[in-house]
Amino acid sequence: MPLPFLTADRAFDTTDHIALPFDDHDQWRRPYRPGSWRVGAAALALLLASFVLLAAVIITAAGGFSGGAATLATAVLVILAALRMLRMGTWVSRAGIRRAAFFTTVTVPWAKVTSVRTVQQPVRWLGLPRTVQGQALVLGRRGGEELMLLTDHNADFLSRVEAFDRAADTVEAWNAEYGVTPPATC
């Protein structure tokens, strides 16, 4: 079963720096590859789910149908959590920009984006409560609201500074292509 959300298109691996290398800009795409921390955590969750599924088969074979059903439901929840963990991140298309977290997804149309910029600020380390000084790609929305899209210390970019810079540049290029530029003030 192909999982298209696991891999970014190969266009980001080329040496020529084409900002929008896709033919179909209407499809939602992640402008970077998932990091090893995210993929490793999902792989461990799927490994745990395989053991829980085996336990469900053993419990059901021993005659505990309600216990087997509960164990099967637990395994399904772990699998769904692993898949959601792989879907987390920033996605772009012609329609706008989407920030997918574990429980929520925020989509902002390009018309409501005022700025996309990289800032130095305290960021959460691997999503944990501990903060460290780092870089964040921040999306400014109409009304003054800001949305943090990427950080250089999250599960996708920890120890991958070049990948963070490339992803930030790509999102900024999508904003330059489809975003509404504010009028110049004199």
Rank of each mutant, 00 (worst) to 15 (best):
51 F>L: 08
54 L>N: 07
148 M>R: 09
56 A>L: 00
91 W>D: 01
53 L>I: 00
71 T>A: 07
149 L>G: 05
26 D>K: 08
24 D>T: 02
30 R>C: 11
132 V>D: 03
167 A>P: 04
95 A>K: 02
44 L>E: 05
128 L>A: 14
103 F>V: 11
119 V>A: 09
127 G>L: 03
53 L>K: 00
72 L>K: 01
64 G>S: 12
18 I>Q: 13
145 E>H: 01
3 L>D: 12
35 G>S: 02
32 Y>K: 14
129 P>W: 05
139 L>P: 02
82 A>Y: 05
3 L>V: 15
160 R>Y: 04
9 D>Q: 13
84 R>H: 13
185 T>W: 11
184 A>V: 14
148 M>G: 03
103 F>R: 10
165 D>G: 14
130 R>K: 06
42 A>N: 03
103 F>Q: 08
12 F>E: 14
5 F>S: 07
9 D>F: 11
162 E>Q: 12
19 A>E: 06
165 D>S: 14
23 D>M: 13
164 F>G: 05
87 R>M: 15
94 R>G: 04
81 A>P: 08
37 W>Q: 14
171 V>G: 11
9 D>R: 14
33 R>F: 03
10 R>A: 12
123 V>E: 03
45 A>P: 08
132 V>M: 06
159 S>L: 15
80 L>F: 15
173 A>L: 06
163 A>G: 10
68 G>H: 04
96 G>L: 10
130 R>M: 06
92 V>R: 04
26 D>A: 10
8 A>Q: 00
134 G>F: 00
173 A>Q: 05
66 S>D: 15
87 R>W: 12
149 L>E: 07
96 G>T: 12
89 G>F: 03
